Amino acid sequence: VSEWTEYKTADGKTYYYNNRTWESTWEKPQ
């Protein structure tokens, strides 16, 4: 699942961004 990158927002929430599909999600990808 290497295309997903984990980021943190300014208020400390974690989200995930897909470099291949430009998708972002709050849930941890499978």
Rank of each mutant, 00 (worst) to 15 (best):
E6I: 06
E23N: 04
Y17F: 15
E6K: 06
T21R: 03
P29F: 06
N19M: 09
T9Q: 04
Y15R: 04
N19P: 10
Y7S: 06
R20V: 14
E3F: 08
N18R: 02
Y7H: 11
T9D: 11
W26V: 10
Y7V: 11
S24N: 04
P29K: 03
P29G: 03
E23V: 07
V1A: 13
K28M: 09
T5A: 11
N19W: 12
Y16S: 01
Y16A: 00
Y7Q: 06
Y17S: 03
E27W: 09
W26F: 15
Y16Q: 03
G12M: 00
N19A: 09
R20I: 15
E27M: 05
N19G: 07
T21V: 03
P29E: 04
V1S: 12
K28D: 11
T25S: 13
Y15Q: 03
T5S: 11
Y17D: 00
S2N: 11
P29L: 04
W26L: 08
T21H: 05
T5H: 09
T5E: 10
Y16I: 01
W22L: 15
A10I: 12
V1I: 13
G12I: 01
N18L: 02
A10F: 07
W26Q: 09
K13M: 09
S2Q: 11
E27Q: 11
A10L: 11
E3L: 07
P29S: 04
D11N: 08
T14R: 03
P29V: 04
T14N: 03
Y16T: 00
P29W: 06
K28W: 09
Y17E: 03
Y17K: 06
S24D: 07
K28E: 08
G12N: 06
K13R: 15
D11S: 08
E6Y: 05
E27H: 10
Y17T: 07
N19T: 13
W22H: 15
E23S: 04
K8T: 13
V1K: 10
G12K: 00
W4A: 00
T21W: 07
A10K: 10
T5K: 10
T21D: 05
E23I: 07
N19Y: 09
W26N: 09
N18K: 03
E6W: 07
K8Y: 08
A10D: 10
T25M: 12
S2A: 12
T25R: 11
Q30N: 13
N19L: 10
E23F: 06
D11M: 03
S24E: 10
G12H: 01
K13Q: 13
R20D: 12
W22V: 05
T9S: 09
T5L: 10
W26Y: 13
A10E: 10
K13F: 08
V1H: 14
N19Q: 11
Q30C: 15
E3Y: 07
T21N: 06
S24I: 15
W4E: 00
Y17N: 02
N18E: 01
Y17W: 14
Y17I: 15
D11F: 05
E23H: 03
V1E: 14
D11V: 02
Q30Y: 10
T25H: 07
Y16V: 00
N19S: 12
N18F: 04
A10Q: 11
N19D: 06
Y7P: 00
E27V: 13
E23G: 02
W26M: 11
E3Q: 07
Y15S: 01
Y15F: 13
S24A: 12
S2R: 08
T25D: 05
T25Y: 13
Y15T: 01
K13A: 07
T25V: 14
E6N: 02
D11K: 04
T14D: 01
T14M: 08
V1R: 11
T14C: 03
T21Y: 05
S24P: 04
E6G: 02
S24H: 13
W26R: 03
Y7A: 07
K8I: 14
K8M: 11
W22D: 15
T5F: 09
K28A: 12
G12A: 00
K13W: 07
W4R: 01
W4V: 02
Y15E: 03
E6Q: 08
T14G: 01
Q30S: 14
V1Y: 15
K28I: 13
K8V: 13
R20Q: 13
W4I: 01
K8H: 09
Y16L: 01
K13T: 08
P29Y: 04
S24R: 10
E27A: 07
R20T: 14
E6T: 06
P29M: 05
K8G: 02
V1P: 14
Y15V: 09
R20F: 14
S2E: 14
S24M: 15
W22M: 15
Y17R: 08
Y7D: 01
S2Y: 09
N18H: 08
Y17V: 15
N18I: 01
N19K: 10
V1M: 14
E23T: 08
T21Q: 02
Q30T: 14
K8R: 12
S24V: 15
K28F: 09
Y15I: 09
E23Q: 06
T25W: 11
E23A: 04
S24G: 12
Y17M: 10
V1Q: 14
N19H: 12
N19E: 13
E6S: 05
T21F: 05
W26I: 06
T9H: 04
T9N: 07
T25I: 09
T25A: 13
E3C: 11
Q30R: 07
W22R: 15
R20Y: 14
D11W: 08
W26K: 03
S24Y: 15
S24K: 14
W22E: 15
K8F: 09
T25N: 05
E6A: 09
W22Y: 15
D11R: 02
G12D: 03
T5P: 00
K28P: 14
N18D: 02
T5I: 14
E6P: 04
W22A: 15
G12P: 00
N18Q: 02
S2I: 12
E27I: 11
Y15L: 09
Y16E: 01
Q30V: 14
E3V: 06
S24L: 15
V1W: 14
E3M: 07
Y16D: 00
Y15N: 00
K13L: 11
N18M: 02
Y16W: 15
W22N: 15
G12E: 00
T9I: 02
T21L: 05
T14K: 07
W22F: 15
S24W: 15
P29A: 03
Y7E: 05
W26S: 10
V1L: 13
T21A: 03
W22G: 15
Y15W: 13
Y7T: 06
D11T: 07
E27F: 08
S24Q: 11
Y7W: 10
Y7M: 15
A10N: 10
T21I: 03
T25F: 12
E27R: 04
E27T: 11
E3R: 02
T5Q: 10
K28V: 12
D11H: 05
R20S: 12
D11Y: 06
G12Y: 00
W26T: 12
K28R: 09
W22P: 02
T5D: 05
W4G: 01
Q30F: 11
N18W: 03
T9E: 01
E3P: 09
P29I: 05
T21P: 03
D11L: 06
K13C: 14
Q30H: 13
K13H: 08
E6R: 02
A10M: 09
N18P: 02
E27N: 07
E3T: 05
T14E: 03
G12L: 00
A10Y: 06
T5C: 15
S2V: 07
V1N: 12
Y7L: 13
K13I: 10
W4P: 02
E23M: 04
E27Y: 08
E27G: 04
E27S: 07
T5Y: 10
T25E: 05
E23R: 01
N18T: 01
P29D: 05
T14S: 10
R20H: 13
W26G: 06
S2T: 11
V1D: 13
N18A: 01
Y7I: 11
K8A: 06
T14L: 08
W4T: 01
Y16R: 01
W4Q: 01
K28L: 13
N18S: 02
Q30I: 14
W22I: 04
E23P: 02
T9M: 05
K28S: 12
K8P: 00
Y17L: 10
P29Q: 05
N19I: 12
S24T: 15
A10G: 07
Y16H: 01
V1G: 13
Y17H: 08
T5N: 05
E3D: 14
T9A: 07
T25G: 05
E3A: 07
Y15K: 06
Y7K: 12
T21S: 06
S2H: 10
T25L: 09
W26E: 11
A10P: 13
Y15P: 00
D11E: 12
W22T: 14
T5G: 05
Y17P: 00
Q30L: 14
A10W: 09
E6M: 08
Q30W: 13
E27L: 08
Y15D: 01
K13V: 10
A10H: 12
P29N: 05
T14P: 08
E27D: 12
Q30E: 14
K28T: 08
W26H: 11
W4Y: 04
E3G: 09
Y16M: 01
E3W: 04
K8S: 07
K8E: 05
W4K: 00
N19F: 08
R20K: 14
S2F: 12
E6H: 02
Y17A: 03
G12T: 00
W4L: 02
Y17G: 04
R20W: 15
Q30A: 14
W26A: 10
D11I: 03
S2D: 13
K28N: 10
Y17Q: 07
T25P: 05
K13D: 08
Y16G: 00
E23L: 04
Q30D: 14
T21M: 02
T5V: 14
N19R: 06
T21K: 01
R20G: 11
T5R: 09
E6D: 02
E3S: 02
T21G: 03
T9V: 01
A10V: 11
A10R: 09
S2G: 14
E23D: 06
T14H: 06
K8D: 01
S2K: 08
E23K: 04
T9G: 12
T14A: 05
Q30K: 10
R20E: 12
N18V: 02
A10T: 08
W26P: 09
P29T: 03
K8L: 11
E23W: 05
T9R: 03
S2W: 14
G12S: 00
W4D: 00
D11G: 08
T21E: 03
W4H: 01
W4N: 00
K13Y: 13
T9L: 06
W4M: 01
S2P: 12
S24F: 15
T9K: 02
P29H: 04
K13G: 06
G12V: 00
W4F: 03
V1F: 15
G12Q: 02
K28G: 06
W4S: 00
E3N: 04
Y7N: 06
Q30M: 13
D11A: 07
K28Y: 08
S2L: 10
Y15M: 13
G12F: 00
Y16P: 00
P29R: 03
T14W: 04
E23Y: 06
G12R: 00
N19V: 09
T14Q: 04
R20P: 04
R20A: 12
T14F: 07
A10S: 10
E6L: 05
K13P: 00
T9W: 02
W26D: 11
D11Q: 09
K28H: 10
T25K: 11
T25Q: 12
K13S: 06
E6F: 04
Y7G: 04
T9Y: 05
K13E: 08
D11P: 01
T5W: 08
S2M: 12
Q30G: 12
